[in-house]
């Protein structure tokens, strides 16, 4: 067991992947000489050289597309995009190419590509660096969407993602990189298909993922002080969704709050909420509640950003409003 950070756990996974499989290479803006804009890949250039830790120009569409091509031809690229907002420049490659190639080639080709990127707000980076657009990607068939919220997942998701024959997008919430915690020296492989119950409770289910897991756990702790037992489910995989886990919990608690840092309209939270309503309607003792970001481009000022983002207060209020 070593105490580590989310960032270091990710780095360790990358290092092991690079060391363990010659087909694996890391590519992206400033992953090499600069050490990664969030220092995830610090030191890897020195260890693996510029062919395998490859700095790219500011050309998101081209290097993501190049990742697709390399994957088609037998490599196992890990492409890093600095921030989800910048991934929009590569949206064409991800949605029109990576996600569709297997299908439109009638199963002849497949794209074993891993794309990692930062997501989320909370650091006063304002309207072009703060959004949570992973829900958009979760809309797209052909992709697997992961959101590691813990150190164990930060480490453990990369290897199975690389084993996946199809494109996998990993969304790392920017506020998590400095998170400290323990990682076993020989961690168990993680299973990408299931959600995780991060706290148990009988009165209410809080469904969340990624950067808002901490928010949800804080809220659950406060609710416990009021005698309300909140179960916290970390979705972990946003596509496909582990709805059986969610439904099993809601079937016991009869109340659900979905917490998602994305915007509410047409969102991942909308999907989860709709599925609960579709499949657990007669188990619900209250409408499904959602706590999302206010529907504004992110403001810079701290007090505004705080107000816009889902906070533990908002979750507690939502839980109370359900009469839990």
């Amino acid at each position: 067991m070593t105490t580590t950070t989310y960032r270091e756990a990710m780095r360790r996974a990358l290092r092991e992947a690079l060391a363990g499989d010659e087909r694996v290479f890391l590519m992206g803006e400033d992953v090499g000489a600069y050490g990664g804009c969030y220092a995830v890949s610090l030191g890897l250039l020195e260890e693996f050289g510029p062919d395998r830790v490859r700095d790219t120009p500011l050309s998101e569409s081209a290097f993501v597309g190049a990742g697709i091509g390399a994957a088609l031809a037998g490599m196992r690229p890990v492409v890093e995009i600095m921030t989800v907002n910048f991934s929009l420049l590569a949206l064409d490659q991800i949605v029109n190419n990576a996600a569709a190639l297997r299908y439109m080639s009638g199963g002849q080709f497949h794209v074993p590509l891993v794309i990692r990127m930062t997501t989320g707000a909370g650091r006063q980076l304002a309207s072009q660096h703060s959004h949570s657009l992973e829900g958009w990607y979760a809309h797209v068939p052909g992709l697997r969407i992961l959101a590691p919220a813990t150190i164990g997942d930060a480490y453990g998701m990369l290897a199975p993602a690389l084993d996946d024959p199809d494109p996998v997008l990993i969304f790392e919430h920017g506020a998590l990189y400095g998170m400290k915690g323990d990682l076993p020296d020989d961690p168990d492989p993680v299973d990408l298909t299931s959600a995780a119950v991060r706290r148990t409770g009988d009165d209410l289910t809080i469904v969340t993922y990624g950067g808002t897991l901490g928010t949800a756990l804080d809220a659950a702790e406060r609710l416990a002080g009021e005698g309300i037992g909140a179960e916290v489910i970390d979705l972990r995989s946003l596509r496909p969704l582990d709805m059986p886990a969610v439904l099993a919990s809601v079937g016991r608690t009869h109340r659900a709050v979905v917490v998602d840092e994305g915007w509410r309209s047409g969102s991942l939270s909308a999907e989860v909420s709709a599925r609960i309503t579709e499949d657990a309607f007669y188990d619900l003792d209250a409408p499904v509640a959602r706590v999302c970001s206010a529907e504004v481009p992110m403001p810079y000022a701290k007090h505004l950003e705080d107000a816009v983002l889902p906070g533990a207060d908002d979750v507690v209020t939502a839980a109370r409003s359900l009469g839990a």
Partner: peptide, 26 residues
């Protein structure tokens, strides 16, 4: 920062148009 002042909107009428297909007992 001042604490967020507004609570989530109370659950509105939110009437679904149709009943869910897989509803238990339906």
């Amino acid at each position: 920062p001042p604490p967020p002042t507004s609570a989530p909107p109370p659950p509105g009428p939110g009437v679904p148009g149709v009943t869910a297909g897989a509803a238990i007992g339906a």
